[in-house]
Amino acid sequence: MSAQGITLSYSSSNLKLSVSFRFLLALYAIVPLCVLALWLDRFGFDHALRDMLPSSPSHFLLFNVLFGTPHIIASNLLLFGHADYVGAYKNKLIGMTLFIIAFFGVGSLFIPYRVLYVISACWTVYHVLKQQHGIAKAVCRLPNWAFYSQLWLSVGAGIFIYLGVFLKNSLTPAQAGQILQVAAILTLLLLINTCLCQKRVPGGLGVPFLWANTLLVACSWYVYSQHYYFLAILMPRLVHDITAYSFYVTHDVNRHGEKPTHKLYQLASNWHVPVALVLPMLSFLLTFLLQTYGDELVNLITRTLFATEIYKAVTLGLVGYLALMHYYTEAFVWSAGSPLRRFIRFSGF
C-alpha cells in the first residue's frame, strides 16, 4: 500500500465490509508478546525457546508457508485475476516484468549474488515498513518532513536488522557487531525522532499508531540483539501480512460478496465457501504446493525433456518474481482513485 495513498476521505457507505484502524492497531500486540516470551524464556527456562527455534525463519517450512509468500501470492492473484485491473495497469506490469528479467535474471550473470540479495533485502524492508507507516499516516497526520524522517529511520534500522538476521552465518564477528551497532544507532535516533514528532500528532489513534511503528522496529532490534532471530522477523512479518490480507479480504467481500462475476468466486459460492476465505485459502494452498513440490516438479520435467535441472526454479525464480511484482504494484494499486480502491472503506478511526 502506498504511503501517500491511504486517506480517510475515500469511502463509500455502500460497501459492506471495512478495514478497521482499531483492528490494524491491535495487530501490534504481537510486539510486547514476543518481548514477554523472550524474558520468560531467558529468566525462567534458560533460553530453551531460543535453542528450539530455527536460527533463521527461512529454515522453518511452516513459517514460509504461513508468512511472507502467501500474501505475495494473494496479491498477485487478486491483481492478475481480474481482467479490468490487468487492463488498467498493463503497461506498468509489462515494463516491470521486463525490468525484473533484465536486472535480476540476465544481471545475475554479472552482478554478484550478495549484491542482488542486499538489493532485494532493502526493497523487502522498505515495502514492509512503508505499508505500515503509510497506513499510520492517515491517523498521525504528520507533516511530510516528520513522516519521511520516521519512515527512513525505520527503514534504515530495519535493513540492518534484516541483514544481521539473514546473513549472520556469513558475517565475521566484527561485521556482525558493526551491523548491530549501526542498527542500534538508527533505532535510538528513531526513538528520539518519535518523541519529537509526537507533539505534532492529534488525539485518538494517532499517538498509539506512531509509537506502534516505532516499537515494532525498536523491539525487533532488541530481540535481534538477544539472538532471538526468529522472533525478530516474526513481529513485522505478522503485522505486515495480516494487514495486507485485511485489504484483500475487504476488497473481495465488497466486490464479490453479493453477486460474484468472477468464476472462482462463483464456484466458491456454489460450494457455500465464504468469499472472505477464498483468497486466503487459495494462497496458503498454493504456497504449500510451490514450496514443497514446485522445484522437484520443474526438475522432473527438465530432466525428462532436456536432461538438466534448474536451481530453485520455483522457490527462487517464480516466487522471487511474484515478490518483486508485489513490492512494485502495492505501491500504487491501493492509492486513492485506483480501480481496486473503489472497494475499500475504513472504520474505527
Rank of each mutant, 00 (worst) to 15 (best):
I101P: 03
F45W: 10
I301W: 10
F80C: 11
G87R: 14
L316D: 11
V31P: 05
W152Y: 13
Q291A: 10
F166H: 08
L277W: 15
R50C: 02
S9Y: 11
N91W: 13
S9I: 12
T302C: 08
S220D: 04
F110G: 01
P173F: 13
V115A: 10
L285G: 11
R345D: 02
L40E: 09
Y328P: 04
R345N: 09
S225L: 07
L180V: 08
L285F: 15
S12E: 11
P57H: 01
T69C: 04
I72V: 15
N76C: 14
G5Y: 06
L61H: 13
Q132T: 07
L171E: 06
K130Y: 01
Q181F: 14
Y311G: 02
G44F: 06
T172P: 03
V249T: 02
L289D: 06
L285R: 09
T243I: 08
H133Q: 11
A313C: 06
E309S: 12
H256M: 05
Y321P: 05
L40H: 08
S58D: 10
M52C: 05
T250S: 12
P57T: 01
S347M: 06
P54K: 04
L53I: 05
Q4S: 14
S75D: 04
V128F: 12
I344Y: 08
A83M: 02
F99P: 04
G294D: 09
N14R: 14
Y311M: 10
I344T: 11
Q226E: 13
I6S: 14
G134E: 03
I301T: 09
S246L: 06
V207P: 01
D41W: 07
